[in-house]
Design a protein around this nucleic acid. Structure first.
Length: 423
DNA sequence: AAGCCTTTGAAGTTC
DNA sequence: GAACTTCAAAGGCTT
């Protein structure tokens, strides 16, 4: 019986083992330790989590552009999937998470189709047949609490999800069973929430209590801290075209989700690099059911509305090249992959040239994309490349063990398709 | 020091 | 209206 029929849908995302997010059915059952020890994952588990994979990984291969699902640059030339395959409306409306799309498998996830990159593999995982779901819940609460105490999770929502802050959601206790937090949070951190000194002094909170600032926020920006007490000084928020008074875009649903979940994901793995964490978060996002996503879409909507109220007349255009100088233009996209990663993908990392493994310039392919025989094959190795080698080995072993992982990998990895297309 | 990487989504521009 | 670009967060990495 599928896990989805045993457990309330609302609980599934929050109990989703990280070890399943990136590589469906990646681990053989014997390695599928139940990932919910009371006080965080064991080192063994942590080492088996996808976060230990190298940070340069194949992306999903699909992007939304203006509400349309498009192939990522690496998959150019491949036909984009039809919108309906991803639960999109025929008019290309962005995924209306709250609507749900029946897929004939008892869920409303648009990604539940076996043909989609993020099919729900959770019910295959032994973790979900584990008898002690309370332990899972306890662990998740502990994870949030730990993150909050480190200052990593300052979101009241995250805190309330974990039951960490009773005045603002405590009592819901278990993630996924709480009512929508919208409207519950004051526009400033509840008393007693521990913050790191940096966040305490420089952070500001959005209308949802989400911390809007970061270490990158300018001093002028932070001085205009958006608490309810000085909300009336919205003059300070009025956008002026200088860096000092840069008004940032409101966060979208995914950004809110990332902000909330980053600490948790980071706490479960050794990687710190955001690009890698973001990949994991992206897949976690796809794994969320629509109910869960709807929560963030609604929060984002509120963010936009409040942002518009506080910053009348502001448009996203105001932030284009706001510092007066353009960012470095992205490199010209080419149909021809020029590095091992694009050619072989993460699953064949063993075939990458050494410089690629060390994130240096690929020497296997010349500038016009032609393969150089044994190019770069004999560059000195270091501990990092050894790690990558072992990851590649594990990755390929996983593929052998799991046909569904194989198909999932081929559908999620643009590099895999690139490899296929380039022979 | 500034920008890149990487993710999704919103909103902008270009054709 | 389709296609494309920019920018939101994050922090290690590259130029």
């Amino acid at each position: 019986m599928p896990f989805s029929s045993l457990v309330p849908t609302s609980m599934m995302p929050s109990l989703y083992p990280l070890s399943l997010i990136q590589k469906p059915l990646a681990l053989p059952p014997t390695n599928c330790t139940f990932p919910f020890p009371p006080f965080g994952p064991s080192p063994e588990l942590a080492s088996s989590m996808p976060c230990t994979l190298p940070h340069r990984q194949a992306s999903s291969g699909l992007h939304y552009y203006g509400g349309r699902m498009m192939p990522s640059p690496l998959t150019r030339g491949s036909p984009a999937p039809s919108p309906s395959a991803f639960g999109l409306l025929h008019n290309g409306t962005p995924p209306p998470a709250h609507m749900g799309f029946p897929n004939g498998r008892g869920t409303t996830s648009p990604f539940a189709s076996p043909h989609t990159p993020f099919a729900p593999f959770h019910h295959h995982h032994p973790a979900f047949s584990h008898p002690d779901m309370n332990a899972a819940s306890a662990w998740m609460q502990q994870a949030y609490m730990n993150a909050a105490l480190r200052g990593g999770t300052t979101s009241p929502m995250a805190a309330s999800m974990a039951g960490a802050y009773p005045p603002y959601g405590g009592g819901y206790g278990r993630i996924g069973t709480m009512p929508s937090p919208l409207g519950l949070f004051p526009p400033f951190p509840p008393f007693g929430i521990p913050h790191s000194p940096d966040q305490h002094h420089h952070g500001r909170f959005s209308s949802h209590g989400h911390e809007v600032s970061s270490s990158r926020m300018s001093h002028a920006d932070s001085s205009a801290s958006s608490t309810s007490s000085n909300r009336d000084s919205s003059e300070r928020y009025r956008h002026r075209k200088d860096k000092q008074n840069h008004v940032k875009k409101p966060l979208n649903a995914f950004m809110l989700y990332m902000k909330e979940m980053r600490a948790e994901v980071q706490s479960q793995c050794t990687l710190k690099e955001s690009a890698a964490i973001n990949q994991i978060l992206g897949k976690k996002w796809h794994a969320l059911d629509r109910q869960e996503q709807a929560k963030y879409y609604e929060m984002a909507k509120q963010e936009r509305e409040n942002h518009a109220r506080v910053n009348p007349g502001w448009t996203a255009k105001d932030n284009y090249a706001v510092c007066g100088k353009k960012k470095r233009r992205k490199k010209e996209k080419s149909d021809e992959p020029k590095k091992c990663r694009a050619i072989f993908g993460i699953d064949r990392m063993g075939e990458w040239c050494k410089p690629c493994k060390r994130k240096k310039k690929c020497v296997r392919y010349s500038q016009n994309g032609t393969l150089l025989v044994n190019g770069g094959g004999d560059y000195g190795s270091d501990s990092k490349s050894s790690v990558l080698d072992s990851v590649a080995h594990v990755s390929s072993s996983m593929q052998t063990l799991s046909p569904s992982a194989d198909s999932a990998a081929s559908s999620t990895s643009p590099s895999s398709s690139a490899a296929a297309s380039t022979g």
